[in-house]
């Protein structure tokens, strides 16, 4: 298999609050032979908030990220679905319109940067299910997770808008289920798997956000899941960090452990729960680790 190399863009959340997602991705990628090249200059994608603030500025800031990857001659791999969506949406618009690309490059001109429109943006889930391949992943599993019943929580931004993302099908997604099953675990289907965790309005309307988080967690729990796995750190923040708020909103104990995608993969590759930084979670997954 050809060597896989990516310009690595963990995203702001995983530099700080969910840094366990970043640290475990680095360990897992090394184990799988995927090379991640740092992007020390990369700025925040704007998480959608800068799209609200000023769209041309948001495009230029994203183009600055792409230009760094382009100068490395690499595609980008992120571990955040919101970064994935924001960057791919910006990239779609820039690639679809030479006029817009020119305007955006005019904003960049003073910095000496220029984006040529040649970068692809992927996330860890796509790399595992696509470039690396489910078959190859299966071969690396040394500890099949056959006691795990994982609810595949895509959330929103790894699937929609599909005209910008294009990897998986928002009506009938398969990639996260395929990875879970490759690890020897069972994937538990539930309706809320492609819906919103509530993160975007945590600070605007806490009540709705907490109710939304609770609805998703109870949905997966009701279908028999003993944990959730998500490719997105923002979903992780709501499902894990804020689970106690969701429990309060629903007046129900939920106690659902939430894995970052890399953590579940790492466990199946034989890495320890210490190496997978499970103690950083507010709802401990240790009780379901064998």
């Amino acid at each position: 298999m050809a060597l896989l190399r990516y310009a690595y863009y963990p995203g702001c959340a995983s530099h700080e609050i969910t840094k366990e997602a970043n640290e475990t991705t680095i360990v897992v990628a090394a184990r799988l032979g995927i090379e991640l090249v740092d992007m020390p200059k990369a700025n925040c994608c704007g998480a959608g908030l800068l799209t609200d603030y000023d769209y041309p500025l948001s495009l230029a800031l994203n183009a600055r990220i792409f230009a760094e990857a382009e100068s490395l001659g690499l595609d980008i791999m992120t571990i955040c679905s919101t970064c994935l969506m924001v960057m791919n949406t910006a990239n779609r618009d820039l690639r679809n319109s030479p006029e817009l690309l020119e305007k955006t490059n005019a904003i960049l001109a003073r910095t000496g940067l220029r984006y040529g429109g040649n970068v692809k943006i992927k996330q860890l889930l796509w790399v595992l299910a696509g470039d690396y391949g489910i078959g190859n992943l299966k071969k690396q599993v040394v500890k099949p997770l056959n006691w795990i019943k994982a609810a595949p929580f895509y959330g929103c931004h790894s699937l929609r808008p599909s005209d910008a993302l294009g990897f998986d099908d928002p009506m009938k997604p398969w990639s996260l289920e395929a990875v879970i099953e490759a690890l020897g675990a069972e994937s538990v289907d539930f309706k809320g798997k492609t819906k919103c965790c509530g993160f975007q309005i945590d600070l605007v309307d806490e009540e709705t956000a907490a109710k939304m988080t609770a609805t998703r967690l109870l949905d997966g729990k009701g279908k028999g899941a003993n944990c959730f796995v998500t490719p997105c750190p923002f979903c992780h923040i709501n499902l894990d960090n804020y689970q106690s708020l969701a429990e309060k909103a629903a007046s129900k104990k939920i106690s659902m452990p939430i894995f970052h995608l890399a953590q579940l993969v790492g466990l199946a590759l034989g890495l320890s729960s210490g190496e997978m930084k499970l103690s950083r979670h507010l709802v401990s997954p240790e009780k379901i680790i064998k």
């Binding site: 700080e16 969910t18 020390p40 200059k41 700025n43 500025l57 600055r64 904003i107």
Partner: peptide, 26 residues
Amino acid sequence: HGKMPKPLLFPQIENIAEVRDIYEEA
């Protein structure tokens, strides 16, 4: 669980001046 964000320890990205230039230019 080490999950409280700490503003003071927050590192700046490299070449932050470029980002500020982009704001001004936009």
